[in-house]
Design a protein around this nucleic acid. Structure first.
Length: 294
DNA sequence: CAAAACGTCTCT
DNA sequence: AGAGACGTTTTG
């Protein structure tokens, strides 16, 4: 088992059968790409190891081993440290900063307004375009991929080293990234890739900006509910699926529960702490409650 | 086209 | 405020 979180709701007796017909994948299929060799509890209990740039670029054998637990099937470059794979993306901000310092990752400047920080329109960048290219690495999506589908973060992209890592939009402001406009730049990524990434983002219309009509937001893919894979079959949403048109209450994305631009939206970003994030703390709490397995 | 699920409205 | 119903959007 990997990081697939199957946090039972108040009761989930029918997980086995319900999971058979439940679309495990979050709405964004690209989330399937994420591959987390570690369980959630790993990230909860294990402090992020100090990583230096050198280790980032040329991971030590120890790091490689750490990224590849014995039971984990190697579905990506084994040289890629697990810091990219944190389901919460906590390692990522650290990594990004290190990369930036190392000059390996440069970002195009964007204003806060452009980035839409704290604004509901701060949309994750759609990744289908680059996924099509990057599927080479971890692309062997076997059936077991399902179990990790929702472990992805907001955005994956393939950096210069050729491996996927989850990319949470909320981390960009932390690491000095400006992402709202979809403008980020990898030193090793050509303009084509960048443009593809940006261009493939939500269309203005789908952003609800000028389109006018209401648009659907998408699951973040990284919150606890999103990571849950089975419907409880007992909540009102599950029981009333046909008429309710609603996802299981216990799978309802935390992000979508919030009103866009509502209270807490911005503070979650600015108040994000690399070690004590809402997500991590929440998981820790869940774990202490026995909701998460080891 | 069907299924899934988000957004909004209405009711309690 | 929460739940339910339904329109609508999105995806395969």
């Amino acid at each position: 088992m990997s990081t697939a979180v199957d946090i039972a709701g108040p009761s989930s007796p029918n997980q086995a059968h319900s999971s058979a017909k439940i679309p495990n994948a979050p709405l964004r299929p690209s989330l399937k790409r994420s591959n987390h060799p570690y369980s959630l509890s790993h990230y909860i209990s294990t402090p992020s190891p100090a990583v230096d740039v050198k280790g980032l670029i040329q991971p030590s054998p120890e790091q490689q081993r750490a990224a590849q637990p014995a039971h984990a099937k190697p579905r990506r470059a084994p040289s890629w440290p697990d810091m990219w794979e944190s389901p919460s993306g906590l390692h990522l901000a650290h990594a990004a900063e290190l990369l930036m310092r190392a000059g390996l990752l440069a970002l195009t400047p964007a204003t806060t307004e452009q980035a839409g920080l704290g604004a509901p329109s701060s949309q994750p960048v759609k990744r289908e375009a680059i996924e099509a290219k990057g599927d080479v690495e971890g692309g062997g999506s076997g059936p077991e991929e399902e179990e990790e589908d929702s472990a992805g973060c907001g955005t994956d992209f393939q950096p210069f080293l050729g491996a996927w890592f989850p990319f949470s939009p909320t981390l960009f402001p932390l690491a000095g990234f400006q992402m709202g406009g979809g403008h980020w730049r990898s030193a090793a990524m050509g303009a084509e890739g960048i443009e593809g990434l940006v261009a493939e983002g939500y269309s203005p219309g789908s952003l609800g900006g000028s389109g006018g009509g209401r648009r659907k937001r998408k699951r973040c893919g990284e919150c606890v509910p999103c990571r849950r894979q089975t419907n409880c079959d007992q909540c009102s949403s599950c029981r009333n699926r046909k008429r309710g048109h609603q996802i299981c209450k216990y799978r309802k994305c935390e992000e979508l529960k919030r009103k866009p631009g509502g209270p807490g939206f911005e503070s979650r970003v600015s108040g994000f702490d690399l070690r004590g994030s809402d997500f991590t703390l929440g998981l820790a709490q869940e774990r202490s409650n026995g909701a998460l397995d080891g």
